[in-house]
Design a protein around this nucleic acid. Sequence first.
DNA 1: ACTCTGGGTTCTGTTTCAGAACTCACTCGT
DNA 2: ACGAGTGAGTTCTGAAACAGAACCCAGAGT
Lengths: 160, 160
Amino acid sequence: MTAGDTPEAIDRTLRVIGDRWSILIVRAALRGIRRFDDFCDDLGIARPILTQRLRRLVSNGVMIKVPYQEHPLRHEYRLTDAGIALSPVLVALVRWSEEHADGTPSPTALVHAPCGTELEQAFWCRRCRTTFGPAAIRGVERAAGDVGSSKDVPDGSPAH
Amino acid sequence: MTAGDTPEAIDRTLRVIGDRWSILIVRAALRGIRRFDDFCDDLGIARPILTQRLRRLVSNGVMIKVPYQEHPLRHEYRLTDAGIALSPVLVALVRWSEEHADGTPSPTALVHAPCGTELEQAFWCRRCRTTFGPAAIRGVERAAGDVGSSKDVPDGSPAH
DNA sequence: ACTCTGGGTTCTGTTTCAGAACTCACTCGT
DNA sequence: ACGAGTGAGTTCTGAAACAGAACCCAGAGT
């Protein structure tokens, strides 16, 4: 690998949510689904796999299992903060799907709640107070010794 | 699936890039890697899988295979615009990895090229000219007939 | 007692993943 | 002209992951 990039960290993440279902489960959870059978119905996922995925998500801190009633003791699954923090990933994925994988835009648009305008996703520089696209990204070494080695990112592609 | 929403589109996308390798391949490509063996070495991916993944990425328009020399006819793989457009997904993933999956921040920081400040990723409303977080997202029906049913996305805050 | 509901587990295939080792076309140095 | 080297793959093989029916079990409702 080119010196010190991090396939490790991202790789570990992909081991948690990098399968066909986990992200869809998180998505469903963001839509308010909490119960085993509802996940099943909503996603059309096989039960054994759902069991397994939920367990994995829970053990990785993406979701928690909380009882919602005693007696016929029942649990539901909710996103933790870490789980909610996945929404940028999801949004990025959904938008990419709409724009590049698919002709048909999804029937559900994501909007800025206060004003109802369809949202965009952008990179943001807090110093310049500006948004920008992929072309303006650069990767730099963060480690102690040598700072400044910039070596990420593509050529072309105008920002949006 | 419960009417309306689009597991289909996102599902199709996940079939393309929803495995442990595809995203890492795109990431490597964004770092400038183009050749078969370089992907191999960089990622530590098994060759047959790389072959398959590249083929799939090409056939789905994420990458293209272009000859970079005749004679010993050789090809390299480059991202298309659609491929470059995946960078928000990647960035979101990397940032989540750093913040939630891992203690150690990655050695490579992503910065805003012009000024060198570490970038953030945010949702952006062009009407309000403001950035905001997941809590301010709402999903609304886009289709003709029944508009108004809003039912996506996080209700303020599940767990905690 | 008997059926329903929620939340699972078992069992049995079928794809997909992964890795070593091999191939093949071509070029280069000698 | 001959062996070594390269780039880009294939073929085998075994290990996981996925998928679907069917089964289980504790309580509750009737």
